Amino acid sequence: MYFLDQELYFPPVEKANSEGLLAVGGDLSPERLLLAYSSGIFPWFNEDSLILWWSPDPRMVLYPEEIRISKSMRKVIKSDNFSVTVNTSFESVVENCASIVREGQNGTWITHEMKSAYLKLHERGIAKSYEVWEEGSLVGGLYGVDLGHIFCGESMFSKVSNASKVAFIRLAQDLQQKGYKLIDCQLYTDHLASLGAREISRESFMEQLKA
């Protein structure tokens, strides 16, 4: 495991341990975050922890053309109960992702420092959000880092059933139209798998990231 200082540098992702932990320390400056995502690395740590940088193997991804929309979700989308916007309420999406109660988790990894860092990326047009609305209220959404050919998903939230799925499906459909290679989902969850995401090797992920 590599200990970072102020130098803008990351070791090769192959140096990560078996759990995917690559490095500790450094900062969350826009420049370091952009270098991290461009290098197949992302931060994930608790409030009272040093900054931890990860590059797991395997990597959970979704190829936009493989988005899986169930019959029930097609009905939800056609019902027009939800409306979707892009990049209109980034800060609110991040706040909701940080505060939403998640089963099996105590607290959040989206610390104040993380919020501030991603807001700076958003101001540079790099971090983006999808918002889902119901009767004028924000009920779901997601945010991530847009590298121009790969979208690195960071977090999503849902206050009502299916809201986060609507956001993710819309993201996948938009990226497919734009010719993006994939959505980086980072780590396996049943929720993501149900939407068509799957694990690939880190080597394969890095090849597509660098292409």
Rank of each mutant, 00 (worst) to 15 (best):
Asp5Lys: 15
Glu7Ser: 14
Tyr9Asp: 14
Phe10Gln: 09
Pro11His: 01
Lys15Ala: 13
Lys15Cys: 01
Ser18Met: 13
Glu19Ile: 05
Glu19Arg: 12
Gly20Lys: 01
Leu22Asp: 04
Ala23Gly: 04
Ala23Met: 11
Ala23Val: 07
Ala23Leu: 05
Gly26Glu: 02
Asp27Lys: 07
Leu28Pro: 02
Ser29Ala: 08
Glu31Gln: 13
Glu31Arg: 10
Leu33Gly: 00
Leu34Ser: 12
Leu35His: 09
Ala36Ile: 05
Ala36Gln: 07
Ser38Met: 08
Ser38Ala: 14
Gly40Leu: 05
Gly40Lys: 00
Phe42Glu: 02
Pro43Gln: 02
Asn46Val: 10
Glu47Tyr: 07
Asp48Met: 05
Trp53Arg: 01
Trp53Ile: 09
Trp54Met: 01
Pro56Gln: 08
Pro56Ile: 04
Asp57Gly: 00
Asp57Arg: 06
Met60Leu: 14
Val61Asn: 01
Pro64Ser: 13
Arg68Val: 05
Lys71Gly: 14
Val76Met: 14
Ile77Val: 10
Ile77Pro: 07
Ser79Ala: 15
Ser79Gln: 13
Asp80Glu: 15
Asn81Cys: 11
Thr85Asp: 01
Thr85Ile: 06
Val86Cys: 08
Thr88Asn: 13
Thr88Asp: 14
Val93Asp: 02
Ala98Asp: 11
Val101Tyr: 15
Gly104Asn: 10
Thr108Asp: 14
Thr108Glu: 12
Trp109Asp: 05
Trp109Asn: 01
Thr111Lys: 04
Thr111Asp: 02
His112Tyr: 11
Glu113Thr: 11
Ser116Gln: 14
Tyr118Asp: 03
Leu121Met: 10
Gly125Val: 07
Ile126Asn: 10
Lys128Phe: 06
Tyr130Arg: 13
Tyr130Ile: 15
Trp133Pro: 07
Trp133Ile: 13
Gly136His: 04
Val139Pro: 09
Leu142Glu: 02
Tyr143Pro: 03
Tyr143Arg: 04
Leu147Gln: 03
Gly148Glu: 09
Cys152Arg: 00
Phe157Ala: 02
Ser158Trp: 03
Val160Asp: 08
Val160His: 03
Ser161Cys: 09
Asn162His: 13
Ala163Lys: 05
Ala163Gln: 01
Ala163Arg: 04
Ser164Met: 04
Lys165Arg: 10
Val166Phe: 08
Ile169Thr: 13
Arg170Lys: 15
Leu171Ala: 05
Ala172Thr: 12
Gln173Met: 12
Gln173Trp: 06
Leu175Ser: 08
Leu175Tyr: 00
Tyr180Met: 06
Lys181Glu: 12
Leu182Ser: 04
Ile183Arg: 02
Cys185Gln: 00
Tyr188Ala: 05
Tyr188Met: 04
Thr189Leu: 12
Asp190Tyr: 00
His191Ala: 05
His191Leu: 01
Leu192Asp: 05
Leu192Cys: 03
Ser194Phe: 08
Leu195Gln: 04
Arg198Cys: 06
Ile200Glu: 11
Ile200Cys: 11
Ser201Asp: 01
Glu203Trp: 02
Phe205Ala: 01
Met206Leu: 15
Gln208Trp: 07
Gln208Arg: 13
Lys210Trp: 08
Lys210Thr: 07
Lys210Phe: 05
